[in-house]
Design a protein around this nucleic acid. Structure first.
Length: 570
RNA sequence: GCUCCCGUGGUGUAGCGGCCAAUCAUUCCAGCCUUUCGAGCUGGGGACUCGGGUCCGAAUCCCGACGGGAGCACCA
């Protein structure tokens, strides 16, 4: 028996010694030995002394000897194997294949952004993972906020992301059901109409005191409720009887229904009593069959009320889960911050390429697959974090690199005249390794344009290469660069620069930088680079993403009489 | 103020009692490769907030401190 311990101990002691300068560490080795032998019924007490002894023996051995011994007893431990990381979502608790139902419940009051992308991707992917159902539900229970144009806009954005839903509905179409449930609560004595002013309610809630309305009898409450619905009573609310003394202030008789007279974009003037999120969210999750609703952490304190309400109503309780919001450094998501910039005309619109809205990201050239990868890499923990956009860029670049055509773009062009330039017709392929992307034919004579930043690097007498063409020696530099043709042999360490002929396409590329630096608007956040692109960019399709060599990946939009570029990232 | 949640390299994450002298990605640096400053390849730097406790053994469990976030709406 002790022999087995000895053998195991020796194996790991040798491995540890080989890995760390010939000296095995007791704690590290003991851990491994116990982990392996515990399932065989060995106790730490019997293992410990043996391991200690083995380690001191092993540590006396020379390094070579340690390696050769290890080779004898356990050659597989000689190579350190790499562990694979799994990027999929963790399994869902209480989940059964085929029986998971998730939902994404946006309020139709704005364009979707990267934060919504996280929520919807998580919801959608879990439904897929378990062969379940995914519902999109518009939480449009506040007619002051809901705007008809966003129902479709949000769906378009989700479709762009590659998210498909099995079912779609509006919470506002279930109001009659909600009213019935409200009545049930009133009859049970679990809800009451409160006629206090919002200031009084706030004050009472803060101090934990109840108001007189709470003690009125159900008949009274039912009458008042009916008056609320009919229009005989204004400025009153329906509250759940929670616990006014509860340390969780969200439990101090939360509002269930309030009166809003605004015309609803879909329901019109049919209703004037509208459920709050606390009521509608919980009830809808339950009656629509959602098994695993997700929401962001700021709702955590409302969980207790969520379950209490469903309890009172006798409704099924879903497995509610929360995760942290997604933040990106310098890219605020809140309308509070973005709207003023749009109003002032500083940010063009909600699809501005500096914004983390899905429309902004799309316009910039970020692919849905990159967003998905990014969201997966963030996970669904409750730890709040501020991610850097480079994570998105890097994912996007790796997808784009093998599939995007390369073009020459010359920012801040300067004229180059080449003496003895041969007339050429050169076929240049669109991708360095994937020839299936094709090529273009470029005709050259002695006139070119190259970028100012490259010109600045050149000294008289230097030889550089017009990339994919030939070598040029610098003769003179003023407003125009004068060079001389010096052959075509590739000089490996020469500067290779991008160029255009005098048949170029003049165009601008908008380059986004961080919108906010430490909460302050960055006045240099949108840079316009003027330059010449090679003629063949005329043949791209509208919205195509290409790489301008040594400049970055650029999404091109083809307008009637011009082309404009948005730099996705370097 | 009260309550809740969170705290792993610069950044983002994995791990959630022994297989962790800690994963992967990103960023940065170096080299290789490349007719792009892109991609790829190799290597390097760099972390368990702190203090107690439980245990043979703690990033992991408990307590406390500190730091960050959220809620205290007739908004979601």
């Amino acid at each position: 028996m002790t022999n087995k311990i000895r053998v195991t101990a020796q194996k790991y002691a040798l491995q540890n010694a080989v890995q760390f300068n010939g000296k095995a560490d007791t704690k590290a080795v003991i851990g491994k030995v116990i982990a392996e032998l515990r399932k065989n019924g060995f106790s730490p007490q019997e293992i410990l002394p043996i391991v200690n002894k083995v380690i001191s023996e092993v540590n006396k051995l020379s390094a070579d000897k340690q390696i050769s011994e290890l080779e004898k007893v356990a050659p597989e431990l000689l190579v350190k194997e790499k562990k694979e990381r799994d990027f999929s979502l963790p399994p869902l608790p209480n989940a059964e294949k085929g029986k998971v139902v998730t939902r994404f419940p946006p309020e139709p009051n704005g364009y979707l952004h990267i934060g919504h992308a996280k929520a919807s991707i998580v919801d959608y992917e879990y439904a897929r993972m378990y062969n379940g159902k995914f519902i999109i539900r518009f939480d449009d229970t506040n007619p002051d906020n809901a705007d008809i144009k966003f129902y479709d806009a949000q769906k378009e954005d989700l479709q762009w992301l590659g998210i498909n839903w099995d079912e779609e509905y509006n919470t506002s179409s279930n109001l009659n059901k909600h009213y019935k449930l409200a009545e049930q609560l009133i009859k049970q004595g679990d809800a009451y109409v409160c006629i206090c002013s919002s200031d009084v309610i706030k004050e009472c809630r803060f101090s934990g005191r109840k108001c007189e309305c709470r003690d009125s009898n159900c008949g009274d409450n039912l009458d008042k409720w009916k008056q609320m619905l009919k229009g005989g009573l204004d400025d009153v609310i329906l509250r759940m009887k929670g616990d006014m003394g509860c340390v969780n202030t969200a439990m101090r008789d939360p509002t269930l229904f309030r009166i809003i007279e605004t015309t609803h974009p879909i329901q019109g003037d049919k209703y004037r009593v509208w459920p709050t999120y606390d009521f509608a969210g919980a009830v809808e999750d339950s009656i629509s069959g959602v098994t695993h609703p997700f929401r962001t952490k700021e709702y955590e304190l409302r969980d207790e009320g969520y379950f209490k309400l469903l309890d009172l109503l006798g409704l099924r309780k879903p497995h509610l889960m929360e995760f942290a919001r997604l933040n990106i450094e310098g890219m605020p998501v809140s309308k509070r911050k973005i709207k003023p910039l749009i109003d002032k005309g500083i940010v063009l619109d909600y699809d501005d390429i500096r914004l983390p809205t899905l429309r902004g990201l799309k316009k910039r050239g970020i692919l849905p697959a990159a967003i998905k990868q990014f969201v997966f890499s963030q996970g669904i923990s409750k730890a709040e974090s501020i991610a850097n956009f480079s994570l998105v860029e890097s994912a996007n670049r790796k997808i784009l690199d093998p599939i995007s055509k390369r073009y020459f773009f010359v920012p801040n062009p300067i004229k180059l005249v080449v003496k003895n330039a041969p007339i050429k017709q050169k076929e240049i392929s669109f991708h360095p390794s994937d020839k299936s992307l094709g090529s273009r034919l470029v005709k050259t004579h002695d006139l070119f344009y190259i970028s100012r930043s490259d010109v600045e690097k050149l000294k008289i007498g230097d030889i550089f290469r017009l990339k994919d063409l030939y070598n040029v020696k610098v003769c003179k530099k003023n407003d125009v660069v004068h060079g001389e043709y010096v052959g075509e042999n590739l000089i490996s360490d020469s500067l290779k620069i991008q160029w255009t002929t005098d048949s170029f396409v003049e165009m601008n590329v908008l380059v986004p930088h961080q919108l906010f630096n430490d909460e302050i608007y960055n006045v240099d956040s949108l840079e316009t680079v003027k330059g010449y692109a090679e003629e063949s960019v005329r043949n791209i399709s509208d919205g195509e993403i290409v790489q301008f060599e040594r400049f970055g990946f650029v999404r091109l939009e083809k307008k009637d009489d011009y082309i404009i570029g948005y730099r996705t990232h370097k």
